[in-house]
Design a protein around this nucleic acid. Structure first.
Ligand SMILES: Nc1ncnc2c1ncn2[C@@H]1O[C@H](COP(=O)(O)OP(=O)(O)OP(=O)(O)O)[C@@H](O)[C@H]1O
Length: 674
DNA sequence: ATTCGCCCTATTTTT
DNA sequence: TAGGGCGAAT
C-alpha cells in the first residue's frame, strides 16, 4: 500500500470496520446491502478514492449515481479527499448522462445524426399530439400524457414498438402500440431521441455492434453504482454488459428504499446480485450515523410491516434524542401556518438556521400553502426539483431559439418559435408546412428551405418564411465558437424579444416578471460557463436536457439560509437536521392510487414513508390534516395507517387500511396500464 | 392575430 | 377550485 507522494492515502479513520472492508476490496463483484444512513454512499466515495490511491487512473473508474446532484457531490468529495485538481477525477454521472455520452460518440452506427437532439417531456407531448392527429381512433381518444406514460412503461421494460405490439392483448393496447410506432418514426425523422431512448439505444448499439460494446467495456476498469435498488431492466442490462469483462462491479443500495417501481425499477436486481455474480462479496452495514435512536426506532417499527424484505434493524451511532412528534391540523393552510411559524420562531431565537429545516411531502401540490406562508413570514426557501422556471414561456422560447442555432434543426423548437414574435407565419402557413412534411416524410426545415415547394404559397408568406430562414442561418453562423450566453444575447437583441415582452405584457409587474425570466436564463448560461472548462452551446443544451439545470457549484450543499421544500422521492439520499413530513393521511401517503392498486404498491408507499423518516438527523415531526381539498372540495381525511404503525397500533392501522381500501377502490377508476 | 369565455378535468412520485 | 385547452368572435 505504498502511495506515491503525490497521491494521498484516504482517511481510513472516517470509516467503520465494515466500511473499511468494503473500501479495501479492490477487485471483483461487491455488494453493500444496508439500511438508511449507514454510510453506503460514503463507501462508494471512499472506494473510488481508494482505487485512485492504488494507481487506478481516475478516468478508468465509473461511478453511477441516481441524480445529477449526487454525482456532482460525489465527484467533489473524491477530489477533496485526494486533493485532485479540477481537471482530474473519475467519471461520475447518472445513467442518462452516461448513455448520452456513449450515444454522442456512436450515434451514426444507429443511423442517427451525430448531433441528435434530446426531446424533453413537453417536446415529447407535442410529437405525440402531432402523431395522434394522423391516427384514426375510434372509441375514447387517447390523451397525450397517458400515451407518454405507456411508452415510458414499455421502454422501461426494454420494449420497442414491435415488442409492444406483439404483446398487446386488447385492441386499445394494440392501437397504443401503433401510435408508439408512429411516435418513434417521428422522433427518428426529427433526428431526436427521448429520455428513455437514451438507455434503449445504448442497448441496441451494444447488441448490434459488438465492437462498440467492447470499446465501451474497455473504457472502464471499475464500475460503482449507488442506489442499485432502483435500477430498471435496461439500466441493469447496461451495467451488466459493461462490467462483464472485468467483473469489478460494486453495487450499493437498500431494498427498503426502493421507491421507483412505478417507473419500472426492479428491486430484484439488488436481491439477485449474488446469483448474477457468484463470486460476489456481500457486506452489510449496521450502524446508522445520521439519526438519533428514537427516529430509527420509529423507522424500524414502520418498515417492519412490509412483508417482502430483508430484515434489518437500524442502530444509531448517535444515541438518544427527542422523540418524533405526530401532530394533527385542521387543513393544509393551518398545517403550513403552524409549521412555518415554528420554523420562524426557531430561526428568530437563533436555535436553528432556515437550512436546518426540510419540509417533505408526497405530492407537488402540497407545496403551495407552505410557499405562501414562507413568503409571508419572510423566510427564504428553495424548492428542490422544481422545474417551474424552465417551464416558463420565455425560457422555453429562448431555449427553442438556442436549439435552432445548432443543426440539425429541431422541428419542435422550430414550430415553437416560428412565429415568435409574430412575423407573419400564422396557423395557415404552419399547417401547410406540417402537411408537406408528413406527406413527403421530410423535416419541416427541409420543406421551409425548398424554394420549389414554397412557390405554391402566397408571396407574403414566402417572404416571411424566407426571412426567418435567413435569420436562422445567420444565427447558426453566429453561434459557431461562441458561448451560450453570447448566442442568447444575440437572439434576444435580434428578435427584439424585450419589445415582444413589453407588447404582450398587460401590467408592469407582468413585464418585469417576464424580463426576470430572460435574465434568469442568461444567468443560468453564465453559471454553466463558469462551471465548464470548455463551454460550448452543444454541451450546454445537452446538460440542460439530461442534467441538473441549476449549475450550482458542486459539493456545495443547500444554502444554510433557505428552508428546503422537497418531495419524498426527491429526498432520497439527502439528510436534514429537522424534518417535517407533512400530509401523512390515508389517500395521500399511502396515495389513493397505490391503495387502489394493491399491496405491492402500498408497500412501496411504506418504503417512501421510511425514506422520509430516515432523512431526519435530530428532530422529526409527522403531521396530518383532518380536511384536505380534493378536486375543489374540502374532504375529510383520516390519519395514515403508517402513523398507527409508527405508534405500534397494528389494530388501528388495519382498520384505517381496510376503510381506505374500500373507499379508494370505489372512487378511483382503475388507470389504464399496458 | 388575439382575446374572450366556456368546458372540462384533475400529476403521485421523475431520470 | 382553478387552470388549461379549444372554439368562436373580433
Ligand atoms: N463511519 C462513519 N462515521 C461517521 N459518520 C459517518 C460514517 N459513515 C457515514 N457517515 C455519515 O452518516 C451519514 C449517512 O451516510 P451516507 O449518506 O453515506 O449513508 P447512506 O447509507 O448512503 O444513506 P441513505 O441510504 O439514507 O442514502 C452522512 O452524514 C455521513 O457523512
Amino acid at each position: 500500500m505504498q502511495a506515491k507522494s503525490t497521491l494521498c492515502q484516504i482517511p481510513w479513520n472516517q470509516l467503520n470496520p465494515q466500511q473499511r472492508e468494503a473500501v479495501g476490496v479492490l477487485s471483483g463483484p461487491l455488494l453493500v446491502l444496508a439500511g438508511a444512513g449507514t454510510g453506503k454512499t460514503r463507501v462508494v466515495t471512499y472506494r473510488v478514492a481508494n482505487l485512485i490511491a492504488h494507481r487506478v487512473p481516475p478516468r478508468r473508474i465509473l461511478a453511477v449515481t441516481f441524480t445529477r446532484k449526487a454525482a456532482g457531490e460525489m465527484l467533489a468529495r473524491v477530489r477533496r479527499l485526494l486533493r485532485l485538481p479540477k481537471d482530474q477525477g473519475p467519471v461520475v454521472g447518472t445513467f442518462h448522462s452516461l448513455c448520452l455520452d456513449i450515444l454522442r460518440r456512436h450515434a451514426q452506427h444507429l443511423g442517427y445524426p451525430k448531433h441528435f437532439v434530446v426531446y424533453d417531456r413537453s417536446d415529447q407531448l407535442s410529437v405525440i399530439r402531432t402523431v395522434l392527429r394522423e391516427v384514426v381512433t375510434s372509441g375514447p381518444s387517447f390523451r397525450p400524457a397517458d400515451l407518454a406514460a405507456w411508452f415510458s412503461t414499455w421502454k422501461a421494460q426494454g420494449l420497442w414498438p414491435q415488442d409492444a405490439s406483439a404483446r398487446a392483448s386488447d385492441p386499445r393496447t394494440e392501437l397504443a402500440a401503433v401510435v408508439y410506432r408512429r411516435y418513434q418514426q417521428a422522433l427518428r425523422l426529427a433526428g431526436a431521441v427521448d429520455f428513455d431512448d437514451l438507455l434503449l439505444l445504448v442497448l441496441k448499439l451494444f447488441d448490434e455492434h459488438p465492437a462498440v460494446l467492447q470499446q465501451e467495456r474497455n473504457r472502464f476498469e471499475h464500475i460503482l453504482i449507488d442506489e442499485y435498488q432502483d435500477t430498471n431492466p435496461p439500466q441493469y442490462r447496461i451495467i451488466r454488459l459493461l462490467a462483464q469483462g472485468h467483473c469489478n462491479l460494486c453495487a450499493v443500495g437498500d431494498d427498503d428504499q426502493s421507491i421507483y417501481r412505478w417507473r419500472g425499477a426492479r428491486v430484484e436486481h439488488i436481491l439477485q446480485f449474488q446469483r448474477d455474480w457468484p463470486q460476489a462479496r456481500i457486506i452489510r452495514l449496521e450502524e446508522n450515523y445520521r439519526s438519533t435512536q428514537p427516529i430509527l426506532d420509529l423507522a424500524n417499527r414502520v418498515i417492519g410491516f412490509n412483508r417482502h424484505r430483508h430484515a434489518k434493524q437500524l442502530r444509531s451511532a448517535r444515541g438518544s434524542g427527542p422523540r418524533p412528534r405526530i401532530v394533527a391540523f385542521a387543513d393544509p393552510e393551518e398545517e403550513a401556518q403552524a409549521i412555518v411559524s415554528q420554523i420562524a420562531a426557531a430561526v428568530r431565537s437563533r436555535q436553528a438556521r432556515p437550512g436546518d429545516f426540510a419540509i417533505l411531502f408526497r405530492t407537488n401540490d402540497q407545496i403551495r400553502p407552505f410557499e405562501a406562508q414562507l413568503r409571508q413570514l419572510g423566510l427564504s426557501y428553495t424548492v428542490v426539483g422544481s422545474t417551474s422556471f424552465f417551464d416558463r414561456k420565455e425560457v422555453r422560447d429562448l431555449m427553442a431559439f438556442l436549439q435552432l442555432a445548432l443543426p440539425p434543426v429541431n422541428d419542435v423548437a422550430l414550430l415553437r418559435v416560428i412565429n415568435v414574435p409574430p412575423r407573419g407565419i400564422g396557423t395557415q402557413s404552419v399547417e401547410w408546412l406540417l402537411e408537406q412534411s408528413v406527406q413527403q416524410n421530410r423535416r419541416i426545415w427541409s420543406v421551409m428551405t425548398d424554394s420549389q415547394l414554397l412557390a405554391q404559397l402566397p408571396p407574403r408568406t414566402q417572404k416571411a418564411l424566407g426571412e426567418f430562414v435567413r435569420w436562422v442561418e445567420a444565427l447558426q453562423a453566429r453561434a459557431r465558437r461562441r458561448k451560450p450566453s453570447q448566442v442568447l444575447s444575440w437572439i434576444v437583441d435580434t428578435v427584439q424579444y424585450e419589445q415582444e415582452i413589453a407588447r404582450v405584457s398587460r401590467t408592469p409587474e407582468e413585464q418585469q416578471g417576464r424580463q426576470m425570466a430572460v435574465q434568469g436564463l442568461l444567468e443560468t448560461a453564465a453559471a454553466y460557463e463558469a462551471q465548464e472548462p470548455r463551454p460550448s452551446l452543444r454541451r450546454f443544451l445537452d446538460q440542460m436536457a439530461v442534467e441538473d439545470r441549476t449549475f450550482a457549484k458542486p459539493g456545495q450543499n443547500f444554502s444554510p439560509d433557505e428552508v428546503v421544500l422537497i418531495t419524498l422521492h426527491g429526498a432520497k439520499g439527502l439528510e436534514f437536521s429537522r424534518v417535517y413530513l407533512v400530509g401523512v393521511e390515508e389517500g395521500l401517503l399511502p396515495h389513493r392510487h397505490s391503495i387502489a392498486e394493491g399491496q405491492a404498491a402500498v408497500e412501496e408507499e411504506r418504503r417512501l414513508f421510511y425514506v422520509g423518516i430516515t432523512r431526519a438527523q435530530d428532530v422529526l415531526t409527522l403531521s396530518y390534516c383532518r380536511h384536505r381539498p380534493y378536486r375543489g372540495r374540502k374532504k375529510p381525511c383520516v390519519p395514515s395507517r403508517f402513523l398507527y404503525e409508527a405508534a405500534g397500533q397494528a389494530q388501528l392501522a388495519q382498520q384505517a387500511a381496510a376503510h381506505a381500501t374500500q373507499q379508494w377502490n370505489q372512487e378511483t377508476p382503475s388507470a389504464e396500464k399496458p
